Structures are given as structure tokens and as C-alpha cells.
Amino acid sequence: RELEAFAERFKQRRIKLGVTQADVGAALANLKIPGVGSLSQSTICRFESLTLSHNNMIALKPVLQAWLEEAE
């Protein structure tokens, strides 16, 4: 499924970029996305391991996609 594929791609790109899960969480606050502050390292970890609820995964995907586009 698309969500699982994105989570895997996100993790691979993050590692290639040399960015930690905690760095991603902190950097999200800098994107100034309305309603989104920083996220914890454990939230990023749970996203990558697909252990968040489906609704949370869907909500976080565009936020993490925005970070990925900014980071690349």
C-alpha cells in the first residue's frame, strides 16, 4: 500500500541524508505548517515502523512529505 511504501521511502531518504529521527521532529517546527509544531523522536520512529494508528499515519504523511521535499 501507498502509506507503507512512503514510510519506507521516507526512512531510506532520511538515513541517506544523515538526519536522525529527533532532527526530523525538531525541524518540522521550522516548516511553519499551520497546526504542526515539532514531533517527538518516538513519533517519527513509530511512523517509520508503521505502529501509529492508520489515521495518524494519514495525517502525518503530508507533513513528513513536506519535510522531505525541503530537506532534499
Rank of each mutant, 00 (worst) to 15 (best):
V36T: 05
R1N: 08
T20Q: 06
E8N: 03
V24T: 02
S40E: 10
E69Q: 10
T51G: 08
G37P: 11
A66E: 14
G18R: 06
Q21E: 15
F6G: 00
I58M: 15
A71K: 13
S49E: 15
A29F: 10
E2I: 02
E69V: 12
P34S: 09
V36H: 11
E69T: 11
V63G: 03
G18V: 00
Q65V: 11
E4W: 07
R14C: 00
E70H: 13
G25E: 12
A71I: 08
K32C: 11
R13A: 13
V63H: 14
L3T: 10
T51I: 02
Q21V: 13
L68R: 00
T51K: 15
I58Q: 11
F6I: 08
F6V: 01
K11F: 03
C45Q: 13
K16M: 13
I44L: 00
E72Y: 03
V24E: 00
E70G: 10
N30P: 06
K11M: 09
F6L: 07
A22Q: 07
E8A: 14
A22R: 10
A22M: 08
R9T: 14
G37M: 08
N30F: 06
A7Y: 01
V19L: 14
D23G: 06
I15R: 03
A7K: 04
V36F: 12
L17S: 01
R9F: 05
L50T: 10
L64D: 01
A71E: 10
G18N: 07
S40C: 11
Q21C: 06
L39A: 12
C45Y: 13
A27D: 03
A7S: 07
E70N: 15
A29Q: 15
F6D: 05
S49L: 08
G37R: 11
P62S: 08
C45W: 06
R13L: 09
S49G: 09
R46M: 08
H54Y: 12
R9P: 02
K32A: 11
L68G: 02
T51H: 07
T51E: 09
T51A: 12
S40P: 08
A22F: 08
T20P: 06
V36S: 11
R13Q: 11
R13T: 15
I33T: 07
A29D: 06
V36Q: 06
Q65H: 11
R9D: 15
R13E: 11
K61I: 09
A29R: 10
K16Q: 13
S40V: 04
A27L: 06
D23M: 09
L68K: 00
N56F: 02
D23T: 05
I15Q: 05
L60S: 12
P62F: 03
A71D: 02
R1L: 09
F6Y: 09
G37A: 09
G37L: 08
A66T: 11
E69S: 11
E72N: 07
L28E: 00
V19Q: 08
V24H: 00
S53G: 11
I58H: 12
K32N: 13
S49C: 09
L28G: 01
V36W: 10
N56Y: 10
Q21G: 04
A7D: 00
N30G: 11
R9A: 12
P62Q: 04
N30T: 13
L39V: 14
Q65G: 14
A5F: 02
L64G: 01
V24L: 09
S38W: 04
P62T: 07
S49P: 00
K16L: 12
N30E: 11
A22K: 06
R14G: 00
A26F: 10
A7C: 09
R9E: 14
L64M: 08
Q65R: 06
K32T: 10
S49D: 15
E69D: 12
E70T: 11
R9N: 13
F6W: 07
E4Y: 09
G37H: 13
I15A: 10
L17I: 04
A5C: 03
E72F: 02
L17N: 03
A71V: 11
F10C: 02
A26M: 10
I58F: 15
T43A: 08
S53R: 06
P34W: 02
K61M: 14
A29N: 12
G35I: 02
L68Q: 03
Q12P: 00
A22G: 11
F6K: 00
V24G: 01
R9S: 13
G18A: 03
F10R: 02
F6A: 03
N55S: 11
N30V: 08
L39S: 10
E2G: 15
L17R: 03
T43K: 08
G35M: 10
A66K: 15
F10I: 01
L68A: 05
L50D: 09
L68C: 06
K11I: 09
A29H: 11
E72M: 04
R46P: 00
K11Q: 09
G35H: 12
S40N: 08
K32F: 08
V19Y: 13
R1D: 04
Q21T: 07
Q21D: 06
N30L: 06
E70M: 06
K61T: 11
Q12N: 15
W67N: 03
A66L: 12
R46L: 08
R13I: 14
A26I: 09
S40Q: 05
Q21M: 03
A26H: 12
G25F: 09
L31N: 02
V36D: 01
V36L: 13
C45S: 12
N30M: 06
G35L: 04
W67F: 11
L50E: 08
L3E: 04
R13N: 09
P62K: 08
N30Q: 13
N55L: 15
R1V: 09
E72S: 08
I15Y: 05
E69R: 11
K32S: 12
R9H: 13
G35Y: 06
W67P: 02
N56L: 15
L64R: 01
L3K: 03
I44T: 10
N30R: 08
W67C: 03
S40L: 03
R46W: 05
A27W: 07
I33H: 06
Q21F: 04
P34Q: 03
A66P: 02
E4I: 15
G18W: 00
L68S: 03
L52T: 03
Q65L: 03
A66V: 04
E70Q: 11
A22T: 07
T51S: 14
A5V: 12
A27G: 07
L68Y: 05
P34L: 04
V63E: 03
M57K: 03
T43W: 04
A66D: 08
I33V: 03
A66Q: 14
V24Y: 00
F6C: 01
A22D: 08
Q12R: 08
F47A: 01
E69I: 10
A26D: 13
A22N: 13
G25M: 06
L50M: 13
N30D: 08
A22Y: 10
G25D: 04
A59L: 04
S38V: 15
Q21Y: 09
L60Q: 04
A7Q: 02
L39R: 02
A29M: 09
Q12S: 11
F6E: 01
L68M: 11
L52M: 03
C45H: 14
L28N: 02
E8V: 12
L50F: 04
G37K: 13
G35D: 12
P62W: 02
E70P: 03
E70L: 05
L39D: 05
A26Y: 09
I33P: 09
L68V: 09
I33Q: 04
G18S: 03
Q12M: 12
A5Q: 15
A66G: 13
I15T: 14
A5E: 08
S38M: 13
S40M: 05
F47M: 03
K16T: 11
T43I: 10
L68N: 00
G18F: 01
Q12Y: 15
A29P: 05
L68T: 03
V63I: 14
Q12L: 11
L31M: 05
A7L: 02
I58E: 15
R13C: 06
V24D: 02
R9Y: 13
W67R: 05
V24N: 01
I15F: 05
F47T: 00
L28F: 06
